[in-house]
Amino acid sequence: MGEDVVRGARVLITGGARGMGELYARRAVAGGARSVALWDIDAPAVVALARDLSASGVDVRGYRVDVSQRDDIGAAAQTLRAELGVPDILVNNAGVVRGAPFWEHDPERDIEATIRINTLAAMWLTREFLPELIADRDRAKRILNIASAAGTLANPNMSVYAASKWAMIGWSESLRLELARAGHRHISVTTFCPSYVSTGMFAGARGPLLTPILTPRQATHAAWRGMLRGTPLVLRPWTVKLAMALRGALPTRAWDAVAGRVFHVYSSMDHFTGRAH
């Protein structure tokens, strides 16, 4: 189907004010979307971007939404239905990262907030619109869930972030299988698992051996193409798939040695600083 999936579609992108969210929005506009809704907690930034993209002639609107709050999602969904209609394409992009030993994480600010934003928000949002997506068979529907390579392999200083992305992958893949089993094949679910992306969220992190840090354009290109094709799982770069295979084939202690001493996976977050607030 290619770009036909986007042309004339209503698109919703969370975390849409900047970074990869902004690039997804620009791809939706370039693909001929009917409308694009951008949700972000940064109201001035998301409204400014929507105003800029609207110059293309596409109806782009920015909304201040805190996706860590289920009530916020419900209220924003009602507004969206009234103003633009039910989205045909959901891009669950919003995310945060906290890099530290687990015992240094604040239970509310770090642990709960990470799970709410990285995992529960995507579930809540998808559940909000999914019955309507299932009922409307007039056009192909897409759900793009942005997970992470951290959801495929354990890594020191990423315990809560990795847990949130492992949950995202498990839920996203299970949802894909449930929809297929129930015969709702007009809806495709794509899970994107990139290694580090240079958006600023992972400032200070170092890519493991043979694993370059992706640019936001490289990452969004791979994810968007996978979404258009309905590819179930998109892994970038190629070493993510290699690491998954080795982790499955080797005994745990042997993998620990390879990951730590050869590929330097386990030290990749040692100098993490993250995005300045």
Rank of each mutant, 00 (worst) to 15 (best):
N118I: 06
P194L: 15
D88C: 03
A257Q: 08
M20C: 04
L12K: 03
S68E: 07
V160C: 05
A28R: 07
A76M: 05
S188E: 07
M168Y: 06
M158I: 08
V86E: 10
D52M: 07
V97F: 04
V96P: 00
W166G: 03
L38T: 08
V36D: 00
L177P: 00
G15A: 12
R116Q: 15
E104N: 00
A77P: 01
F263K: 00
K241D: 08
G62N: 10
E112K: 15
R18A: 14
K141N: 04
W224N: 01
E112Y: 11
G62I: 14
T152D: 02
A254C: 12
W103D: 05
N92S: 10
G74T: 06
L246I: 09
T220L: 04
T126A: 07
M123A: 11
A37K: 02
H271W: 05
K165I: 13
L120W: 09
R176Q: 09
D71Q: 14
T211R: 03
I213M: 15
D4Q: 13
D59M: 02
G21F: 09
F272N: 00
F102D: 01
T211G: 00
E132W: 04
A154D: 11
R253D: 13
G21T: 08
E178M: 11
D72P: 02
N118Q: 04
A167G: 13
D106I: 02
R109F: 10
D110A: 08
P251R: 08
V265S: 04
A17R: 09
R206V: 15
P101T: 03
L53K: 10
L12M: 09
A167K: 00
T215V: 09
R98L: 00
E178D: 14
H184S: 12
G200R: 05
M201E: 08
R229P: 03
P156E: 13
T119A: 09
T119R: 02
P212T: 12
R185N: 13
I115E: 08
L133N: 04
V234R: 06
P107F: 06
T215P: 04
G226P: 10
Q218W: 01
M269W: 07
A25W: 13
L153D: 04
R181N: 14
A245K: 09
L23V: 06
K141I: 06
T231V: 12
T79C: 08
A77D: 03
R7E: 12
D256P: 01
N157F: 14
S56C: 02
L235R: 13
Q218H: 10
G57Y: 08
M123P: 00
A28D: 06
I213D: 08
R261Q: 12
T239P: 00
A37S: 13
A254P: 00
P237I: 10
L214S: 11
H277F: 05
F202Y: 11
G15E: 12
Q78C: 01
A163Y: 03
M123Y: 10
